[in-house]
């Protein structure tokens, strides 16, 4: 189960919409598994079908989280033409077993589809998303 404050949900969706038709990506940092701080990352690939965090930006953000005793609670990216389900590449490259992998589909201009998964050793498990008011 991912409990996601509504403002964080809205920021992720807005980022995905803004970068459409390229994929958007980012992190929600937090302590104790609580998503608190949205960090929009540059998609170094600038691609409609692929994303990769810019390596230097990733280093800085990971250092900052470490200094603040935070972890990457959510790792999100968008799919711009397909459903919000992890692709084979997403599964093969997932390296944070403790993170919630959030996918947003922007294929429909009116309705954003946001779903969350655990990806551990190549196994994908979808989990419910509860939007918290505020």
């Amino acid at each position: 189960m991912l409990r996601l404050p509504a403002d964080i949900h809205d920021k992720i969706v807005a980022h995905a919409r803004r970068d459409h038709p390229d994929e958007a990506c980012g992190v929600v940092a937090g302590c104790g598994g609580l998503p608190e701080r949205v960090i929009e990352m540059d998609n170094a690939e600038r691609s409609p079908t692929f994303y990769r965090f810019d390596p230097i930006e990733q280093l800085h953000v990971w250092r900052e989280m470490e200094d603040r005793d935070e972890e990457p609670v959510v790792i999100y990216h968008s799919h711009t033409a397909t459903e919000a389900y992890p692709s084979r590449t997403d599964i093969a490259l997932a390296t944070e077993p403790a993170a919630h992998y959030v996918l947003v589909s922007t294929r429909d201009a009116d309705e954003a589809e946001l779903r969350s998964y655990r990806i551990v050793d190549g196994a994908v498990t979808e989990e419910p998303v509860e939007i918290l008011p505020g």
Binding site: C25, V27, M41, E45, T49, F50, Y51, R52, F53, P55, Q58, L59, W62, I75, H77, P86, S87, R88, T89, D90, L93, A94, T95, E96
Partner: peptide
């Protein structure tokens, strides 16, 4: 030296 897995996908 710092090692970090890339965060990437499709």
């Amino acid at each position: 030296v710092t090692i970090l897995p890339a965060v990437a996908g499709g």
